[in-house]
Design a protein around this nucleic acid. Structure first.
Length: 268
DNA sequence: GCGACAG
DNA sequence: ATCTTGTCGC
C-alpha cells in the first residue's frame, strides 16, 4: 500500500525539537473517533470456534470481512526487522517484511523515528488493502498524542491501534489493587505529562488474559490506545475480540513470530 | 538535582 | 528490544 502523507516521514536526521514539532502535526491530523467502514463485530481471530456456518443465503461474505494486519519489530545488531501479517476472517492472506539499518537509539517518546521507516517500507510491500492495523507500542498514550501507532496510521491514513505492554504516560483512573480479572478495562487519563486536556481518556488498561488463581500469580494488563480513526472505547473492544485466549492479540502474535522468522534469515 | 521512561 | 536455563504453576 502507499503512503498518503509523506510530509510526516519519521526522518531520523531531524533534531529532537523538529521531531517533537512533527509529532504535534501528526496528532493534529489524526482523529480519535471511529472512522472506518467495517463492522467492529465482524473482526475475529482464526484459532477460535470452527462452527462457521454458511450464511442463510448461502453466500460467502468473506469478501466483506475486514483485513486486519499485525505489525511488529525485531532487531539484529543495528538492523531493524519489520514484519507485517495480514489476515481476513482469521486467515493469513499475506506477509511482508523490511530490514532497515537503525539510525538512532531508542528514546522514550520518539520510537517512531527509530522504527517507523522500517514499518513503512514493509507496508509498501503489502499488496492487499488493510482495514485495520494493530501496532506494537502506543498510539494516543503519548506525550504529544502521537505514538508510533498514530504516526503510522496517519501517514497511511489507515485505522490503527496501539498495543503496549507498559504504560508510557498518563494515569489510570482507578489504581489497580493487586490485579484485574480477565476482560476488565480501566481508562487511562491524560495527566500533566500529556498534551491532551487533563482527564481526557487516551486509552485503556485491558486485562486480555488472567490466570485461574491470580492470588498466587497474575498477568499484567495491556495498555491499548487509538492510533488513528478509532475511538478509545472501540480500540479496547477490538483488541479484546482479537485476543484468542492469549495476552497479546492474534495479529500481534503472528507478526511477532514472522519477525523472528525473518530475523534468523538476516545476519547482523 | 530526582524521578519517569512504548520498544 | 535483546541476552538466556531453569523453573513455578495450572
Amino acid at each position: 500500500m502507499r503512503v498518503v502523507h509523506p510530509e510526516f516521514a519519521p526522518d531520523a536526521s531531524l533534531s529532537r525539537e523538529e521531531m517533537e514539532t512533527l509529532q504535534y502535526d501528526v496528532a493534529e491530523t489524526a482523529t480519535f473517533r471511529d472512522e472506518f467502514d467495517f463492522d467492529p463485530e465482524s473482526v475475529r481471530t482464526g484459532s477460535s470456534d470452527d462452527d462457521q456456518r454458511e450464511l442463510p443465503t448461502g453466500k460467502s461474505d468473506t469478501g466483506e470481512k475486514p483485513i486486519v494486519v499485525g505489525v511488529d519489530q525485531a532487531f539484529v545488531g543495528e538492523k531493524a526487522v519489520s514484519a507485517i501479517v495480514a489476515a481476513r476472517d482469521g486467515e493469513v492472506i499475506e506477509r511482508t517484511h523490511a530490514v532497515v539499518e537503525t539510525e538512532i537509539p531508542y528514546i522514550p517518546g520518539l520510537l517512531s523515528f527509530r522504527e517507523g521507516t522500517a514499518i513503512l517500507r514493509a507496508f509498501e510491500e503489502l499488496s492487499v488493502e488493510p482495514d485495520l492495523a494493530i501496532v506494537d507500542g502506543s498510539g494516543r498514550i503519548h506525550y504529544r498524542e502521537a505514538g508510533i501507532a498514530t504516526h503510522i496510521g496517519v501517514m497511511l491514513d489507515l485505522p490503527a491501534i496501539g498495543v503496549a505492554k507498559n504504560l508510557l504516560c498518563g494515569k489510570l483512573r482507578e489504581p489497580i489493587q493487586g490485579h484485574l480479572s480477565e476482560g476488565e478495562r480501566i481508562p487511562v487519563l491524560a495527566n500533566e505529562r500529556v498534551s491532551a486536556p487533563d482527564g481526557t481518556v487516551i486509552g485503556y488498561a485491558l486485562q486480555s488474559r488472567q490466570y485461574d488463581n491470580p492470588e498466587k500469580r497474575h498477568v499484567n494488563p495491556l495498555y491499548v490506545s487509538p492510533g488513528h480513526r478509532v475511538s478509545a472505547e472501540t480500540t479496547a473492544d477490538l483488541v479484546w475480540q482479537l485476543c484468542a485466549g492469549y495476552k497479546l492479540p492474534e495479529p500481534t502474535r503472528r507478526a511477532d513470530a514472522y519477525a523472528d522468522e525473518v530475523k534468523e534469515t538476516v545476519g547482523s
